[in-house]
Design a protein around this nucleic acid. Structure first.
Length: 428
RNA sequence: GGAGGGAUGGCCGAGCGGUCGAAGGCACCGGUCUUGAAAACCGGCGUGCCCGAAAGGGUACCGGGGGUUCGAAUCCCUCUCCCUCCGCCA
């Protein structure tokens, strides 16, 4: 959400931001409603002030004068009621527009309508020819007894999987490595709820918009308040301090959430259907930073959380490229986003494994997440987040990049301590 | 699953349906006193929105939503959360 006062004062910046993101948005309608809201507020509050003053007199009056005042008050009550109803109607539409209003992208974000316009910033590692026909992760992992896809389908349908034996152990090893990296860098690990209330999803800017991508769980005692399964622990972690006024001295908060993530992947039929690249349920370690509203500090945090993620890929010895995400692919909330894409020989392509996002105060406003600044003023925080590691997608890159001619998979050195020193996974 | 109790400002804790944004205490900030500190004393000390250049004024908020009333922190309904006891269970 943007500051209504900011939209009022910089309507052109908001219009231009929406245009760059390719999101149709009616700024004029929002401004008109904002104007109307203020007009009605004034009328309603004036009537209330009179009502309050007269109401206080009622107690001291008796007889005809009391009856007269009561009669006048009845008229006032009707006026207040009418204004309140008008105000409610206007506020409902205005709030919906405010929630939908896109955060203008940073000037640094490349122009372009979709991911095809993403700009490569740099690369790490060498994408080298394996020297033999690359197998993809399904073939490799199935052959090594790491993965069951067909039986998993009987259990849970499409886009499900069973990690098995060395596959399951490898996943745990990767998750643990990622947690150790992020904790060593000063982040506090949080094991968080995956079943959450709706405000957390609105607050993190997933709703309205991503309802169809999210699993909804009926609440047996209240149909009005369903629960939802998070698609990322970013939701639970960022919303953790929602509604609070933090002390500037305790910022920045550096958190890493660990959780299972759930995504319906509606509308992706036929896309990435093979293997475990795109699935309904996966494990992820996610980093979140909450700090004061200072652009320079946000930029520094963004660089830091990006490096944290790169450190994980480097330790896994996975070549990757760093992509600045185009304005049209940022979504409504992000100001700036950088994706990391690891090389996946089975696809002969880079595949997205991380996504580092800077929101400014867009999420914080929705979450009512604030802090008291050193000057005593209350301000909205800035928030950022990035993946630390997500499995099983990272396993796709891992087994494909480290496959050997005989179908075995070499374990990168950094991962061996988590696997009892295992150097390679070989066919049983 | 059954029975009961509770939710008030950063914390604790009062609050006959009107003069309650809300007593009191703690914490915090400023001042007096002191060589300095402590103690004592004096003062300040919530958030949003509206009007205003500002000073300031208005309005809303006592877990959320709805209702009764001229008027609700106080009465009624409902939801959420917390606690106690019984039952069941990882």
């Amino acid at each position: 959400m943007l500051d209504p006062a900011y939209i009022r004062e910089h309507p052109d910046a908001v219009r231009r931001g929406a245009r760059r993101k390719g999101i149709a948005f009616d700024v004029d309608r929002l401004l008109a409603l904002d104007e109307e809201r203020r007009r009605l507020t004034r009328l309603q509050e004036e009537a209330r002030a009179e009502q309050k003053a007269l109401g206080r007199q009622v107690a001291t009056l008796a007889g005809p004068s009391r009856a007269q005042v009561l009669e006048h008050l009845a008229g006032l009550k009707a006026r207040v009621q009418a204004h309140t109803e008008d105000l409610e109607r206007v506020t409902t539409e205005l709030d919906a527009l405010l929630l939908a209003c896109p955060n203008p992208p940073d000037e640094d974000a490349p122009d372009g309508p979709d991911e095809g316009a993403n700009v490569e910033l740099r690369r790490w590692g060498e994408v080298r020819d394996l020297g033999f026909a690359a197998r993809d992760h399904v073939e490799l992992m199935t052959g090594l007894g790491m993965l069951e896809v067909e039986r998993a389908g009987r259990l849970a349908g499409s886009r499900s999987y069973v990690l098995k034996g060395p596959g399951a152990l490898l996943e745990q090893a990767v998750l643990r490595l990622a947690q150790d990296v992020i904790v060593a860098r000063g982040f506090v690990l949080l094991s968080v709820p995956v079943l959450v209330k709706e405000w957390t999803l609105r607050g993190t800017a997933y709703f309205p918009g991503a309802e169809e991508q999210t699993y909804r769980i009926a609440n047996p005692t209240s149909d009005d308040e369903p629960y939802w399964l998070v698609g990322t622990s970013e939701v639970s972690v960022t919303a953790l301090h929602g509604g609070e006024i933090l002390d500037a001295a305790q910022l920045p908060l550096r958190y890493a959430g660990v959780s299972t993530c759930f995504r319906r992947e509606a509308g992706t039929y036929g896309k990435d259907t093979r293997g475990v690249y795109r699935v309904h349920q996966f494990q992820k370690v996610e980093q979140v930073v909450v700090d004061v509203a200072d652009d320079a500090r946000s930029l520094a945090h963004h660089a830091a959380i990006l490096d944290n993620a790169e450190e994980v890929l480097r330790r896994l010895e996975l070549p990757y490229r760093v992509m600045a995400v185009a304005a049209g692919d940022l979504g409504r909330g992000a100001r700036y986003k950088v994706d990391l894409e690891a090389w996946m020989p089975g696809r002969q392509a880079f595949g997205e494994t991380h996504s580092a996002t800077r929101f400014g105060d867009y999420q914080a406003r929705r979450l009512n997440l604030r802090y008291r600044d050193t000057d005593g003023r209350v301000r909205f925080c800035h928030t950022l987040n990035n993946t630390v590691v997500a499995s099983p997608r990272v396993l796709v890159a891992l087994v494909e990049a480290h496959q050997q001619p005989d179908g075995s998979v070499r374990i990168p050195t950094a991962l061996r301590p988590y696997l009892g020193g295992l150097e390679a996974i070989r066919a049983p």
